[in-house]
Design a protein around this nucleic acid. Structure first.
Lengths: 233, 233
DNA sequence: TAATATTGTCTCAATTCGTAACAATAGAAC
DNA sequence: GTTCTATTGTTACGAATTGAGACAATATTA
């Protein structure tokens, strides 16, 4: 596969996405591992000349997760000179067996518009891109070292997610359509990084009048079965 | 003055700033009026190749207001194709007596990173830029029509400012160093667009323990003189 | 000295929140 | 079937916060 041609993309503009998922009680994000370098990075990409910014992000997410209609929020654009590291980008391209032309556009300084996405961990089909060996889930609390300023981007994403959690009531996007109150509470606890009081949480969620109560979930465990809930549409 | 040369700027990247000020009980923003067109726009600009994004914004604000150390917050990046209007940009340049070369860089599609700033209305010395007849204050509630998507940018700035008002306690940036509780309340009311209860507001502000109380302000009016306050540093 | 307008503080009820207690119940143990 | 255990949904109650008004203080005018 040849190197991407600048003619179809807008130079100097990129996006990076912090894709949050939730499984086994842990908050996780998607990271790509670049071929033959052992370097990890956020899934990102470029914007086509005839494409809206947000559509470019959605396209990238679709290619890597197979999902459309993802909950997506732009949270910051990163534009320091410090983040410009042509040596690292060149090494990544060379590790993929490419001849890198002098002044190749991907080595230029880029402004990255960062988005976070919330998805149901069960629904994804992960597909690496051309430069990557793998794309997979990593616990937010146990991330490997990331290239460029991607660690800073993750931190800012997490901070924004925490601030928006109550304000925009977005926690449900990390769960399947139907879920128990306990699962929802676990999502909140994983995002906020602290334990919450069961009864207060239940009372607050119910008082917001955003949940619809469905049938009970019988797990086979020897105790009272919890109700399933979904967000009102 | 010749047209700016692309060689010193990064193409496709611009910024726009929504500069809020407060005077006579009204929330206002700065708008530029382009020469000979009657068109209004937000103060914006481009990023130099050896310059950080935020420094570019500060540079632009300094050139137009004479202020440094401005409270500044990035709130969104606009990247739709729809906002690309080379005809309008060309008309603005031509109205300034420029010959516009074919494929001139300023006619390209731009991504705009939007910031809002909060400044003390009394401190500014307004200076128009090369393309503008004037730069001056306009009430947020009575804005003229704006070019491109600038009306949408202002709306988003206002929304973000409202959301951040309590969270970040930034209202004081619109006032002089010392102010009365009543003035601070007026700022809040102008931003939120609603009247607040005097006693609740006073109690809340004092309980936050962020204000320092100074001498009284004697206005000459025949009633009890209010205290002056400043934000604790 | 009285009148007026505005300010700073206090009071009391309404609401929300933290905390614990309690009743309901699905399955396991017997 | 009965009892036991773990977990869930709900209620109760005091603490903290908030809404709304009352009231005293005071700078100037009449």
């Amino acid at each position: 596969m040849p190197l991407p041609d600048v003619s179809q993309f807008i130079p100097h503009i990129a996006y990076d996405s912090v894709v949050f998922g939730f499984s086994k009680g842990k908050l996780k994000i998607l990271l790509m591992e670049y071929h033959a370098t052992g370097w990890f990075a956020l899934p990102g990409g470029f914007v086509r000349k005839n494409e809206d910014l947000e559509d470019a992000v959605k396209r990238g997410l679709y290619e890597r997760t197979g999902l459309k209609d993802i909950y997506l929020e732009q949270f910051q654009t990163f534009g320091t000179r410090e983040r410009h590291n042509p040596e690292i980008m060149e090494a990544i391209l060379k590790a993929n067996g490419h001849e890198v032309p002098r002044n190749y556009w991907m080595l230029d300084r880029f402004f990255s518009v960062a988005y976070y996405a919330l998805i149901d961990h069960e629904k994804v089909t992960l597909t690496p891109d051309a430069l990557s060996d793998s794309i997979s889930w990593y616990e937010v609390e146990k991330l490997p070292a990331l290239i460029f300023d991607h660690a800073k981007i993750v931190q800012k994403a997490l901070q924004t997610l925490r601030e928006n959690l109550d304000r925009k009531l977005i926690g449900g996007n990390l769960l399947p359509e139907k879920f128990t109150m306990n699962e929802l509470q676990s999502v909140y606890e994983a995002i906020l990084g602290e334990k919450l009081r069961r009864t207060s949480f239940q009372r607050k969620m119910l008082s917001l009048d955003i949940l619809e109560r469905h049938e009970k979930l019988f797990t086979g465990k020897s105790h009272k079965a919890p109700y399933l809930y979904s967000f009102k549409s």
